[in-house]
Design a protein around this nucleic acid. Structure first.
Lengths: 107, 107
DNA sequence: TAATTTTGGACAATAAATGTCAAAACAAAT
DNA sequence: ATTTGTTTTGACATTTATTGTCCAAAATTA
């Protein structure tokens, strides 16, 4: 389970990591091999990250990659359901379906 | 809460509704104002439905629209997380985020 | 076998995401 | 207040994904 600040967004989280270390966008963007402007947008949740970016961010900041991925994907799902009436129930049903599929995979 | 067969997919579900009534794709597709082939693909989860289609399906089959939407969106989320290691945890975190946002909206 | 239904592939048109750049806005200020 | 560095914003071309549509083959049923 994630320990701290589960309700901070993915973008806010990596911005926090970066600012804690007093690093400019320029530096991290270079390490990620993306444009400064793209990283700025990722930190403002206006652009998507991807597997490679998450991988590299986890290395740069020495954090768990799986944890970062959870933050990223949970954000995306949250965003998809934010305007839905039955967001919570949709998640519950999705959970049952995933459990069911996992079960099927074992057979 | 949805009562029956929560683990059947959206496509399988509406196919079942249709076949229970012995109706051809042609007829339902006409009512939905979409191509027969598109409806076939929706029933095989190879194409997306949308708000209008869900709305009309719920009327055609006299079922609850919200329920149908839960089926549809939970399917989409399930599909997104099916290959993820931490699918369940991602959903839990998303749930917390949604609850948090809902809470914020009230203030 | 004929009639009907269903499927799969193809295609253009539309929409969404991506990578890139340049200029504007902001902050350091000392 | 002008410089210096950072961040944000918008624009744009390119790529990728989705949509609507048609048709022919495959499958099903009569």
């Amino acid at each position: 389970m994630m320990s701290k600040q589960p309700n901070i967004s993915f973008g806010e989280y990596i911005r926090q990591l970066r600012e804690d270390r007093n690093l400019p966008l320029r530096k991290i963007a270079a390490e990620l091999d993306i444009d400064t402007s793209t990283l700025s947008k990722i930190e403002k949740n206006e652009r998507n990250a991807n597997e490679q970016i998450i991988e590299r961010l986890s290395k740069i900041f020495s954090i768990d990659k799986a944890d970062l991925k959870v933050r990223y994907l949970s954000d995306k799902i949250t965003y998809q359901l934010l305007d839905e009436e039955d967001g919570i129930e949709i998640l519950k049903v999705a959970e049952q379906k995933i459990i069911y599929h996992k079960q099927q995979q074992l057979q």
